[in-house]
């Protein structure tokens, strides 16, 4: 049924934007890991105080330089790879935890449901960015600390969706017959449940990626990020030179905004595409 539906323009636009970003990210990955640096010691933008705050096009720098004289193009690129890497990692981890907890809270023993409900509610009622600020301030800034607190605040969303979907799927007749002939819970999970919830889950992962990119950048902006190569920490540096070099803020904002627009468009488009009601 879905295959007959026309792919909507949101998927096309979002997909094209994301494809451009992917090409950019892969190009930079090859440049930094193989051409300019090595795999064990990737190349990082080098600073040179003599060429600080060049405008776009100055001295061969396409986009200019920042306050430390680093090439803005190289900074943006390493920020892109950092953002993409951390958001993929966080979303996959959060989604995996969410899938397991969501599935177990329906099919597992009763205490799992009670405990997971309590935990999910607790994390949901907390303002999530504040929880992240608290954890980052308490643990100090590190990459894994950042991943940890983004996963902690991220998984309940997936767990809720998976729970709802599991309840729906378990009520379908073909699943009931599978249960009746004694298919084990593990097999049920991999052969029936996972394929059934994957479409909806992928929409939420795509939309979740943009959420993680924003959260990560917010923490970076507040000085609580895991790396100086986060777009957020670059923006907090760039806003101090807003008057002298407005182009730095503009390039940073639009690189980040463009990526998030792409993800949001693709996520919205996929949701409409998969929605049986066709709203």
């Amino acid at each position: 049924m879905n295959s007959l539906k026309k792919i909507n323009s949101e998927i096309k636009w979002g997909g094209s934007i994301l494809a451009l970003y992917l090409v950019w990210a892969i190009t930079w990955f090859i440049q930094s890991h193989f051409l300019k640096g090595s795999f064990s010691a990737p190349y990082l933008p080098s600073s040179d105080i003599k060429i600080e705050l060049l405008g776009p096009g100055g001295q061969g720098f396409i986009l200019g330089t920042d306050i430390y004289g680093r090439s803005l193009y190289e900074l943006l690129s390493s920020g892109l790879n950092y953002s993409l890497g951390i958001s993929l990692l966080v979303c996959l981890m959060a989604a995996s935890i969410g899938i397991i907890v969501g599935y177990l809270s329906v099919t597992g023993p009763r205490f799992v449901k009670i405990a997971s409900d309590l935990l999910i509610n607790l994390i949901f009622v907390f303002p999530s960015i504040l929880i992240a600020i608290l954890i980052m301030a308490a643990t100090g800034q590190s990459f894994w600390g950042l991943v940890f607190c983004l996963v902690v605040t991220g998984w309940p969303g997936y767990a809720k969706i998976v729970r709802g979907e599991t309840i729906r799927v378990m009520g379908l007749t073909y699943v009931e017959s599978a249960v009746a002939i004694g298919v084990s819970k593990l097999r049920l999970f991999f052969t029936i449940l996972l394929p059934a919830i994957m479409p909806l889950l992928s929409v939420h992962i795509v939309l979740g990626l943009s959420g993680v990119i924003i959260s990560e950048a917010t923490l970076g902006f507040l000085g609580l990020g895991g790396s100086e190569y986060s777009w957020g920490s670059m923006l907090s540096m760039a806003k101090t030179v807003l008057l002298e070099a407005p182009s730095v803020v503009v390039f940073l904002s639009f690189s980040m905004g463009g990526l998030i627009i792409g993800l949001n468009l693709l996520g919205d488009g996929l949701r409409d595409y998969l929605d049986p009601k066709g709203v």
Binding site: T218, L242, S253, M256
Partner: peptide, 10 residues
């Protein structure tokens, strides 16, 4: 798609 801290400077 523009987080607050990039919208504000703009």
């Amino acid at each position: 798609s523009f987080p607050i801290f990039s919208l504000a400077p703009l």
